[in-house]
Amino acid sequence: MHKIIHYRNKCIGCGVCYEQQPELWRMSKKDGKATLIKGLGKKDVYILDITNAEIEKSQEVAEACPVRIIRVQ
């Protein structure tokens, strides 16, 4: 099973993840940072299991993140 790992505290709120993959990401109204929808978090690191169909797009998003805080593994 693949998963997305999001190191949220370093997010600069550019919104590229949400623009490219709105089904998994939203922009927090509270602090302007990206939030991994349904991601399980501990100490600002959020993890979400993804399906095989979501891997490619998620990898593109990870690549597009300007501060490289999204990982797919």
Binding site: M27, S28, K29, K30
Partner: peptide, 11 residues
Amino acid sequence: MYEHDMQLLKT
């Protein structure tokens, strides 16, 4: 500034 930054900006 983007739309989603407004709340943080106000805070």
